[in-house]
Amino acid sequence: MLKILKYSFYDLMRSRWSYVYFVFYLVLGFVLLFLNNNVSKAVITLMNVIIILVPLIGTIFGVMYYYNSKEFTGLLLAQPIKRSLIFLGQYLGVALSLSMSLIIGLGIPFILYGIFRSDAIWDFSLLLITGTFLTLIFTALSFNIALSNENRIKGFGYAILLWLFMAVIYDGIFLMSLMIFEDYPLDTFSLTATMFNPIDLSRVLILLKLDISALMGYTGALFQKFFGTNFGMFLSIGILILWVVIPAWFIERKANRKDF
């Protein structure tokens, strides 16, 4: 698998898009630090960007890479390599190169600004960790979509829909149900609903770490009580890991049952 990973990674590192993505984060990091002149504020702004953009790029890149490398995959399938490893290798190749663009692209400006001397180092690390998780999660989901759809237009369509649902529609439904059922106790519901969407979960994690939960009223207090503890933190990370492992397992299953 490492060899497939190596070649996929190498292939992506030579494509223009990885650099565009990297330069985008580099510029974003510098601009935010320059304008805010405050690491914590920059982290909050970055969070808002990352939480929407990372899943979008992960999904689009995953689908695009899968369809574009179909020929390469065909070539590999006739070689003495285990089938599931080909796809897991390609998946990790995409996800890791995207994560690297994110981490290095944001890392450089923040290191130059002096993040190591600032007390926002943990907030910033958490931001990068959740960003990496979101990349891994959404690339895995997009590989599943691409593996199930031979037709690229359909594949792209479903991928965009998935992102739209997770990033926008889910929150809408969530808020609507909170309003409709406001007479009922909704503590467990809102906690569970947050857990089921990796984007929401990452957002809550970062917001709570930044200690601005007071802005969120009662829900904030509730979330603070839950996620603020070590147990809540570990549970959230655990759920993020599940969000990576389960789709990756599905990639393996789908790849093993598909005709090429």
Binding site: R14, S15, E71, G74, L75, A78, P80, I81, R83
Partner: peptide, 21 residues
Amino acid sequence: EWKYRNNIDYLPQIANFPNNL
């Protein structure tokens, strides 16, 4: 199984390769 493919050389019908190699 997959190891048996070590014994096979295969020429696919349509020669499609990764374009940027």
